[in-house]
Amino acid sequence: MKPYYIIIFLVLFSACKTVQTLPDPLEAGWEGKKVCEVLNETKKQRILKCTFPPNVGHQKHYHKPHFGYTLAGSTFQITDANGTRTIPVTTGVTWSKDKISEHEVLNVGDSTSVYLIIEPK
Rank of each mutant, 00 (worst) to 15 (best):
K49F: 06
C36Q: 00
T21P: 01
P120N: 14
T90M: 14
P53A: 10
Q20T: 08
Y4P: 03
T18L: 14
Y115D: 03
S14Y: 06
G68S: 08
K33D: 13
E102Y: 11
P88Q: 15
T84D: 12
V19I: 14
F67E: 03
L12T: 10
E102D: 15
N40R: 11
K97Y: 07
Y115Q: 05
H58A: 11
T21K: 08
Q59E: 14
E102S: 13
T18M: 11
C36R: 00
V56D: 01
P65T: 06
K97I: 10
P65L: 07
F9S: 06
H58M: 11
T42S: 08
A15K: 15
C50A: 05
G68H: 01
L48T: 01
T94F: 07
E119H: 09
C36L: 01
V105H: 01
I87P: 00
T42A: 04
T51R: 03
A81E: 14
D98I: 09
K17F: 12
V11T: 09
H103F: 05
G57T: 02
T84R: 10
S111E: 12
S96G: 11
G68W: 01
I87V: 15
Y69F: 14
G92K: 07
H103A: 06
F13K: 05
V93L: 13
S111H: 08
